[in-house]
């Protein structure tokens, strides 16, 4: 049991070596593939912002509609 645990510990210790050259954790996913994820993130944020803005306009308009067309 001790042997297995010890070998497991050693294997886990080597995982870090495979993951990184210098062992420092970085947000590498975001920098892989020529940093395309950064662009995706920006576009998604812009779209989110614009669409949320559109929803808020819609909401305000609904309020004004209620004042102007009380029947509906």
């Amino acid at each position: 049991m001790k042997k297995i645990l010890f070998s497991l510990l050693l294997t886990l210790a080597t995982v870090q070596l495979f993951a990184q050259d210098n062992g420092v954790e970085m947000a590498d996913k975001l920098r892989s593939d020529g940093k395309i994820y950064v662009v995706v993130l920006c576009i998604v944020i812009i779209l989110f912002g614009l669409l949320a803005y559109l929803f808020s306009i819609d909401k305000r308009l609904k309020k004004i509609e209620k004042e102007n067309f009380p029947k509906n």
Partner: peptide, 16 residues
Amino acid sequence: KILGSVLVIYTAIAGL
């Protein structure tokens, strides 16, 4: 409206 928003955001992610 939500469907349109989700599809457009999906397009930006999947399209890139």
